[in-house]
Amino acid sequence: MLAEEMYRLRGYLQDQGIMFCYSGYMTEGVLTGIGQAIKRKLELEDADKKTSKAIFSIFVEQMQNVIRYSAEREPLSGENELRYGVLTMGQKGDHYFVSCSNLVERKDVARLNDSLTHIKGLDPDGLKALYKRTLKGDTPQGSKGAGVGFIDIARRAVHGFDFDFTEVDDEHSYFCLRAYL
């Protein structure tokens, strides 16, 4: 039973083209470790260098988003909190993908949705302009990073990205962003 259950999970992941899946609390230490594994895997895959670097960059931005913003966390306030998320990386057809999902607060959904819809609609020049404007501007309210993570992901995802939300309860939604390379 035990093995059968996990074998089914493994089969599901393989069917989805997932090479790598991490579900759990994300920390900077986890980022370092998984980052090394992904780098090594891409070297073995013989992925071209440009694609490998883009995959790695998107992975870092996605992980750091969860570490900083996931609404699923322990303890609920204070230092040394742990934030939960699910990260997958894989290949489907000719494209690689990096996908990341986490709980968000429903009050943040509209803002995230607007911002990502805007980014998705921009062409490379528009993305570049927004990237530079954001780098030069003040850090947005409630942001612990530079606020340029999503724009950076969009610029490196040569085959675009998708995202959506699903309602979980009165206060939370679940958010997923998948970038294609």
Partner: peptide, 16 residues
Amino acid sequence: VYFNSSTAKVLMGLFD
């Protein structure tokens, strides 16, 4: 060789 988006913000400031 590689820098993340938070570092990019530092670099932009440095260039300025």
